[in-house]
Amino acid sequence: MSTLLEVRDLFKTYGTGEAETRVLRGLSLRLEAGEMAALLGPSGAGKSTLLTILGTLMKPTSGSYEMLDQDMISADDRALTDFRNAHIGFVFQFHNLLPDFTALENVIFPTAVREGRETPTARTRGRDLLERMGLADRIDFPTANLSGGQKQRVAVARALMNRPELVLADEPTGNLDRASAKQVMDLIGEINREEGTTFLISTHDEKIAASCRRQIEVADGVVTG
């Protein structure tokens, strides 16, 4: 396996003066392509901050970050936006779908925003992904009419739309019942095995963590295990 990304000595500090909070304190981590890793740790350990930095939505206070042999620290906003669109997918705890759009429109958004329009190819892939997620009968449903589990599966499909090398999932099952959570995790595992997409899943759930091949523990802003 080749190295997908590597961060070294990551520091992240919020606020200044008395309000200063150091969330990451020299965190280093390497992810290989095709890994399926769980990110564990107590609340406030820095998991979400790490995911946000890895997702290029935020820059660390200091440290280095390379993904696919590109320096993510020196890249400007436009370059990071393009990189994120092409190589990184997100699954959030609260699905974060666009409420005024259908399931299919949400799924193909990352491609449409890159192409400047909804191409037939994108529509075909979006439909395929939704069918794979077991949502064939919900393709043109407004997302407001979907259940929590269905919404989260739409979010997973959206994260996979541009065939990213990395999918970052922040508590993807935290808001779902057991059955829906298992369904979503099974899908994630299937895609990881079949397409080699790397998943980094932040979770508090031991069972979810156990379903991943690697567990990364974070505490006090550093990787502890």
């Binding site: 997702g55 939505l57 906003d77 436009r78 936006t81 393009d82 994120r84 669109n85 092409a86 997100f90 974060n96 779908l97 666009l98 409420p99 958004f109 990352p110 925003v113 890159r114 959206r158 541009n162």
Partner: peptide
């Protein structure tokens, strides 16, 4: 604002 955040996260540029 949340939707704009989602769009930005999904790769929508500022100009978009």
């Amino acid at each position: 604002r949340p939707e704009i955040g989602i769009m930005r996260a999904m790769g929508a540029g500022r100009n978009f």
